Simulated assay, not measured.
Amino acid sequence: MERMDDTSEGAAPHPQGPPGRPLDSRAELSEFLRSRRARLQPQDVGLTGFGRHRRVPGLRREELAQLAGVSVAYYTRLEQGNGRNVSSEVLDAIARALRLTDAEHAHLTRLAKPKALKKKRAARRQHMRPALQRLLDSVDGTPAYVVGRRSDILAWNAAAAALFGDWGELAPKDRNWARICFLDARARDFFVDWEQKASDIVSYLRMDAGCYPNDTELSALVGELSVKSDEFRRLWATHDVKEKGHGVKRMRHPLVGELTLSYETLRLPDDCDQSLVMYHAEPGSPSAQGLRLLASWGRDASSVGSGAR
């Protein structure tokens, strides 16, 4: 086992520093491990939970250390944010013990070994190839957009504008799913499962924070939302992480009523921070008819009323 430097027994710093400052990877590691340990019970992992009254939610440190095959002192130092010399093998064992998903495992590794990240700051501005906009415009009737780091909406087609509202009317910094979801009251009416949408967005931001701990714009966004939204603070504190994927969203559009749409997320091969998101409806369904109506009205996106901009 590789040696890990000692640290004090005190708690790690709070994970959210002043707005605009980089996020503290050491504190993020500590809080992430605590949150994953708290969600497991002894019976979940084949251990006997002795005693009726447990002072901590979930597994104790010694129980987790036993499952991972490391000493309690070693795991304690890691959970206090000191992962500088931890080996990949130990991280793999802890990930298995905590039953982490692939996304959570990758997040743990980035937090514990930040020096392994590329030593570059996230670019202040994100650029999209013009050919991608032409591709979006060619997808007639199918809502599609490109999303980048920090949940920034970088480009979209007329069908997306008809569905979600014309993001072109917003200031560039407000073309951001996190700001839209938590700061625009219309989003709560638009997304039938608003809580799930909000949870997904926060999970994506957590992944970005692990990939780019020095991104001051991301830190500023987290700070702003933490001040302005109780729901964001609550969800951020869960430390959940998730990769963008596929699924189903239910929406309540002011013009065509309720829509049930499937979505697919395709990561762009030449920029892993950008993803193409496309929505579609089951053929012959009322939602498919609704999308057709929106497409006919939305070729001039500015003529459409507001959705969940």
Rank of each mutant, 00 (worst) to 15 (best):
M1R: 10
M1G: 14
E2F: 13
A11S: 13
P22D: 07
A27D: 12
E28H: 07
R39F: 04
G51A: 08
H53L: 06
H53F: 07
Y74G: 05
T76W: 14
R77T: 13
G81S: 10
V90N: 02
D92Q: 06
A93T: 03
R99C: 04
L100E: 04
L100K: 01
A103D: 13
A106Q: 03
H107K: 01
L111P: 03
L117T: 00
K118A: 08
R129Q: 09
D137E: 12
V139S: 05
D140K: 14
D140L: 13
D152Q: 01
W156C: 13
L170R: 10
R175I: 05
D184M: 13
F190D: 00
D193S: 13
V202Q: 04
D208Q: 09
A209C: 09
G210E: 09
E217D: 07
L218K: 00
S219W: 03
V222T: 00
V222I: 08
L225P: 05
E231F: 12
R233A: 09
L235H: 07
R250M: 12
P254N: 07
L255D: 01
L268Q: 06
P269Y: 02
C272N: 13
Q274P: 06
G284P: 08
S296V: 12
R299L: 13
A301E: 14
G305Y: 15
